[in-house]
Simulated scan of single mutants.
Amino acid sequence: MGKRFLGLGPAVLLAVAVPGIAATLTKLQTPRGVAGAVLNPERPEADTVRDADRKPAEMLAFAGVRPGWKVLEISPGGGYFTRLLSLAVGGNGYVYTNATRASTAVEAWAKAHPNVSQQLVQPGQLGAPEPVDLVWTTQNYHDFKNNKIGDSDQAALVNTAAFAALKPGGVYLVSDHQGAAGSGATQTNTLHRIEDAAVIREVEAAGFKLEARSAILRHEADDHTQKVFETGLRGKTDQFVLKFRKPRGRR
């Protein structure tokens, strides 16, 4: 059936066939593109088994993803969200992935989905041939803090580049592993965490306005003292999800 799922009716009707997601999709009033993307049978099993932890329907709905959107995804890794975003924006949308190293998984998906392309960029740089509606990055911001480029760290350059890449009114979605209260950016290289307050300060300094934050990926059992890769914690870390907006009228 492939991408025909993108044209199905309201999320509540889709949920009838998949009872486990009924409450979530109905509560969020999930856009049809998002609901169709999550349920699309093209998604590999390696992705769908991670959905309980990564909450893709809630994440895309929180960002406001719509069919036809142009998206720039930073450091897509294995392409988990690349695949979801490409299905959600549909044939009239596009996903530009930016990374410093090529991803074979993203390349494979792009070969079968003409609304995705992989672009290699220098650290701190971003590129898309047109203004985008959404810049998206998950579990990467703390790594940007560990890379110095001249007198700046990579995060500062990424924030500036994200602002330039977005249409006025566009969304910048940042999610990462929460650091301990008051830790700021001091745990980025040790525990691979960063405090949300530090991210908010830095992103707003680049011209964005924080529009909303979400508890979608909160895990209160995580006390922020362990590396995010520890057995039993991986995939269950306490994570923040922040939605910033580029002010309208800004270019």
Score class of each variant (00 low, 15 high):
Gln118Arg: 09
Lys148Cys: 03
Ala161Ile: 01
Val65Thr: 08
Gly77Glu: 01
Gly170Val: 04
Pro131Val: 10
Ala128Thr: 07
Phe62Leu: 04
Val199His: 02
Gly179Leu: 02
Ala156Lys: 09
Thr82Cys: 05
Ala99Leu: 09
Gln125Trp: 02
Gly127Asn: 13
Ala99Gly: 15
Val121Asn: 04
Arg101Glu: 15
Gly179Ser: 07
Gly77Met: 03
Ser175Phe: 00
Gln139Glu: 14
Val135Asp: 02
Tyr141Val: 05
Glu195Val: 09
Lys111Cys: 13
Leu157Tyr: 02
Asn189Lys: 14
Ile149Met: 13
Tyr172Gln: 08
Ala108Tyr: 07
Arg201Asn: 15
Leu173Cys: 02
Thr186Met: 04
Pro114Arg: 11
Asn189Met: 13
Gly68Asn: 05
Leu84Phe: 04
Val174Glu: 00
Pro76His: 07
Val132Asn: 03
Ile149Arg: 10
Ala164Ile: 00
Gly77Pro: 01
Ser86Leu: 08
Thr160Asp: 14
Gln139Ala: 15
Asn147Ala: 15
Val89Leu: 05
His192Trp: 02
His177Cys: 08
Gln118Phe: 09
Gly179Cys: 08
Ser75Ala: 15
Thr186Lys: 09
Asn92Pro: 02
Tyr80Ala: 04
Gly68Pro: 04
Gly182Met: 08
Asn115Lys: 03
Ala180Leu: 14
Ala164Pro: 02
Gln139Ser: 14
Gln187Cys: 15
Arg66Thr: 12
Asp196Phe: 04
Ala161Ser: 13
Tyr96Glu: 09
Lys167Asp: 08
Asn115Phe: 02
Ala99Gln: 10
Ala161Met: 02
Ala164Cys: 03
Ser86Trp: 06
Glu195Met: 10
Ser75Thr: 13
Ala105Thr: 08
